[in-house]
């Protein structure tokens, strides 16, 4: 479903991704772990199409189409969703307005009918309830003054509303309290489907207890240096990244 071949990318002329290869088939959940500064978030941004992230080599196909050819919003409409490690604050735009604008923009681009206000509200209410998000919070400007954990929950709410085909979760677990971690994980698990793929970036095994990955990859210095089954996460937790730091250099 998502196929990344030998990807190299630079930010402000500094090469961060150095030949990264990764395949995530439909229906699978892959985890990426790796030390701070390894390039995990950079991978998410590069896939989403962030300006100033120059793709200097390699290729990415998404459902057989060239992903890197598309503009940011076209990637979203094609079904790619990036949950930000640090979600942005959108002053003056109520979360509900933001979400409805986003949803209808995607639908328009795909040639689908827009959602009506009542349909939209009905669905938001259901999703918000399942994520234990208060409707009042959705009337406030998106993420402005929200706590770290609330912002992460909002990322998952948007995901559940937009129903993307492929999810990149960049440390969605950081900042969540124990109960919220469970609620958010349930929300993510509810989205697991045979035609949907996920890339879960995390530092902690704890998240992977809830969202069981099919594969775990170790990203060090811009490359995948090792891949394995779920047990790899446990091994990393026990031994850290020391043994890989030499390999990547």
């Amino acid at each position: 479903m998502l196929s990344i071949q030998n990807l190299t990318a630079a930010v402000d002329a500094k090469t961060i991704l150095k030949g990264l290869t990764l395949e995530v088939p439909a229906g699978e959940v892959h985890a990426i772990m790796g030390p701070n500064g390894a390039g995990k978030s950079t991978l998410g941004y590069a896939l989403a199409g962030r300006p100033n992230y120059d793709i200097t080599g390699g290729s990415v196909t998404f459902n057989g189409e060239d992903l890197l050819d598309k503009e940011v919003h076209e990637r979203a409409a094609a079904g790619l969703y990036l949950s930000f490690q640090y979600p942005l604050e959108i002053p003056g735009v109520p979360a509900l307005t933001f979400l409805r604008t986003a949803l209808n923009s995607q639908k328009k681009l795909r040639g689908e009918a827009e959602v009506t206000a009542p349909e939209f509200l009905k669905k938001v209410r259901e999703v918000a309830k399942s994520l234990r998000i208060d409707m009042d919070m959705l009337k406030r400007p998106l993420n402005v003054g929200f706590s770290g954990g609330e912002k992460k929950r909002m990322e998952v709410l948007q995901m559940a509303m937009l129903e993307p085909k492929f999810l990149i979760l960049d440390e969605t677990d950081s900042g969540l309290d124990i109960d919220a971690l469970k609620v958010v994980s349930d929300g993510v698990n509810a989205l697991r489907a045979p035609d949907r793929g996920m890339l879960v970036i995390t530092h902690y095994q704890r998240l992977l207890d809830h969202i069981k990955p099919d594969q775990v990859h170790v990203l060090v210095a811009g490359k995948i240096v090792r891949s394995g089954g779920p047990e790899l996460a446990l091994e990393l937790e026990a031994h850290g990244y020391d043994q890989y730091l030499g390999v990547a250099a």
Binding site: A48, P51, H73, A76
Partner: peptide, 17 residues
């Protein structure tokens, strides 16, 4: 960029903000 990753094209995102 954040708005665009959620599916808004650039003019829509600019207008919203």
């Amino acid at each position: 960029f954040f708005c665009q990753t959620r599916g808004m094209d650039e003019p829509t995102a600019r207008a919203l903000l």
